[in-house]
Each structure stands twice: as C-alpha cells, then as structure tokens.
C-alpha cells in the first residue's frame, strides 16, 4: 500500500455503507469538500442488512485494522428492517471478536442518514484516530492474497 509514510502507522479501514444513507452521506461529504482521512475504503452495499458477519471476519483476517458499518437510522431503512437485523449481527460480532481475541473496538457501526455528511466525516476522523491508537490489526502482516509474509 502506497500511503504508508515512514515510521507512521496508517490504518486500513474497510467501510461497508448502505446505498441509501451512509453511502449518500459519504457522497455529500465529498461534494461539500469536507475533509476526512483517506484510510477508509468504502464498499457499497444495498443495505446494512446485507453485511454478512462473514464479510467482517474475512476483512479482518485479510489484514484490515478496522471495520466500519454504516446504515440508515432505525425506522428509515429502505427495506424496513434491514438495519435492525444489522444491529443484532453487529452486537453478536462484537462479542464474537472479543471471544476469539480480536479487540471489539476495531468494529464500529453508526447510523448516518443521507443528509449527515458532517456526521460521516466526523465518524471517520474519530474512528481512524481510535484505530491509530490501537495500532496495527492482528492480521496486518498478511498480504491481500492471504499469504503470510515472513
């Protein structure tokens, strides 16, 4: 990865964002020229309910330092209850990560509606700073193809 400056740890964060709210908020933040750290890479999903717990696990195992999930506020889901299921899965994942020994603080979920560009940029800033504080993720040394580098 090209962004790593000598000596300083630059986290890699994967963000799963819902098409209807958080992705639109990221778009808004971009068009409004709000600044937020470039450490987050967004993957657009149709709904936060599409975020399978396995996605989160796979992303961690392939070397991500943090995972962010963004969805619509409860009651505003385009598919009625997708975000409610997402919240249950997220709660389960937090405990799962803790049980196997991955710091649950590396996983974060936030409701960000399409108009909340500021909330999006603030959240990314805050989360990036938090991950910087936690240091590299447990599988950071693994390259994306899944082969360990010695």
């Amino acid at each position: 990865m090209g962004e790593e400056v000598k000596g300083e740890f630059e986290p890699r964060i994967i963000g799963f964002t819902c098409n209807w709210c958080t992705y639109a908020a990221a778009d808004l933040a971009g068009t409004a020229r709000m600044k937020y750290p470039p450490n987050i890479r967004l993957i657009r999903q149709m709904c936060s309910g599409r975020v399978d717990p396995l996605f989160v696990l796979k992303v961690f195992l392939r070397g991500a330092d943090g995972v962010f999930i963004g969805g619509c506020h409860p009651g505003e889901c385009h598919y009625m209850t997708g975000n409610l299921s997402a919240r249950r899965r997220y709660s389960m994942m937090k405990k799962l990560l803790e049980s196997v020994g991955i710091d649950p603080k590396r996983l974060r979920m936030e409701w960000i509606s399409a108009s909340e560009g500021i909330k999006f940029s603030d959240t990314v800033k805050e989360f990036t700073a938090q991950i910087k504080g936690l240091g590299p993720g447990p599988f950071r040394h693994i390259e994306t193809e899944g082969k360990e580098q010695k």
């Binding site: 506020h73 409860p74 009651g75 889901c77 209850t81 409610l84 919240r87 997220y90 709660s91 979920m109 936030e110 409701w111």
Partner: peptide, 8 residues
C-alpha cells in the same frame, strides 16, 4: 426496535 436509535 425501529423506534430505538441506540446502536448499543
């Protein structure tokens, strides 16, 4: 649950 905003 749709009326509860708290993530946690």
């Amino acid at each position: 649950e749709a009326s509860i905003d708290d993530i946690d």
